[in-house]
């Protein structure tokens, strides 16, 4: 090896990126060449200096990143309306499309699209200037009567949906009623996820627990069902809950939901669960869920075929 080749390969040498043979040749050359050895020493001290110069990750940044990621991932399931970039993910979780328009509302909106200019002209000069029609959806539910008059105007009779706000503790009876109603609102899966998420903190309440079990059994959205499962976790021993869980195992089409249901059912390792799992095993299509069942069975020391 001559000095020119050596100088070219020294960088790779100090990073340990030369092949075994190349490294041998390099070491032989370095043994006999003071110039290249000095060069090697300089490269090594460069590496050391560079290591001191690494820009530091500010304290708390990692924790902030982790926390916000967790929030975003949860939000990806809970509230797609707030984050458009997560729309793609949301689609996976929403089995039925988010029907935010009720049929009745749709009719009303068509009608109002036609009449809006006359109904709200003075209300929002800014919107009018921008040529943007004010979104009528939250205000009107239905136009009852359209009545042209002699002077070329028109009289419209409509029903108004008034948006009202209420705040209070989760324990508050009114709030709880509203949440229970929202938990079964067929038009908005995001709303159901959020409501279930809040309700599950009060799972000790019988009515809430029934609502969760109901959501787990019947909700068309797997995000909602997963939330309901989470809320039921403290009740994995409750016979009624277990019945629903077993049903979920048999009929739920979402592997994530089935996996969680298995975990909850086997956590107390009751021997009768082995029989149920045994029965499920041959019918389970999803490889991951199957491996989870097998694992649970092994942990119960119930080998396949003994039940």
């Amino acid at each position: 090896m001559n000095c020119e080749t050596a100088k070219q390969q020294l960088v790779l040498f100090v990073y340990g990126e030369l092949s075994f043979d190349e490294e041998e040749l390099m070491e032989q050359h370095l043994d006999g060449c003071a110039g290249c050895s000095a060069e090697r020493a300089r490269l090594e001290s460069l590496q050391e200096v560079l290591s001191q110069g690494e820009s530091e990750v500010p304290a708390g940044l990692l924790a902030r990143c982790r926390r916000d990621l967790a929030v975003q991932v949860a939000a990806a399931h809970a509230a797609p309306r707030r984050s458009l970039s997560l729309a793609a993910l949301w689609r996976d979780w929403v089995v039925n499309p988010p029907l935010w328009l009720r049929p009745v509302g749709a009719v009303a909106m068509l009608a109002l699209g036609f009449f809006a200019a006359r109904i709200v002209p003075g209300d929002s000069p800014a919107l009018a200037r921008m040529g943007v029609a004010q979104d009528p959806a939250p205000v009107f539910s239905r136009v009852r009567l359209v009545n042209p008059n002699d002077s070329g105007g028109v009289r419209v009779q409509y029903e108004e949906v008034r948006q009202r706000e209420m705040s209070g503790a989760l324990q508050d009876d009114h709030i709880r009623r509203l949440l229970l109603a929202a938990a079964v609102d067929q038009t908005d899966p995001g709303l159901r996820v959020e409501s279930i998420d809040l309700l599950k903190q009060h799972c000790s309440d019988d009515e809430v627990r029934r609502a969760l079990m109901n959501a787990l059994r019947t909700d068309s959205n797997s995000g909602v069902r997963l939330k309901a499962l989470e809320g039921l976790k403290p009740y994995a021993r409750d016979p009624e809950t277990r019945k629903v869980l077993a049903q979920v195992l048999l009929v739920d089409d979402n592997p994530g939901v089935r996996t969680q249901a298995i975990d909850m059912l086997v956590q107390n390792k009751e021997p009768e669960m082995a029989g149920v799992l045994q029965e499920l095993l041959p019918n389970e299509q999803n490889g991951y869920v199957r491996s989870r069942i097998q694992k649970a069975l092994n942990e119960m020391k119930a080998s396949a075929g003994t039940f």
Binding site: L62, R66, V73, A74, V257, G287, Y288
Partner: peptide, 20 residues
């Protein structure tokens, strides 16, 4: 595989192996 099946816990553990 667990994260692919929708297990958030598994996803989080996966993230934590690399995120630093």
């Amino acid at each position: 595989r667990a994260a692919q099946a929708g297990d958030h816990d598994a996803f989080e553990r996966l993230v934590r192996q690399y995120d630093q």
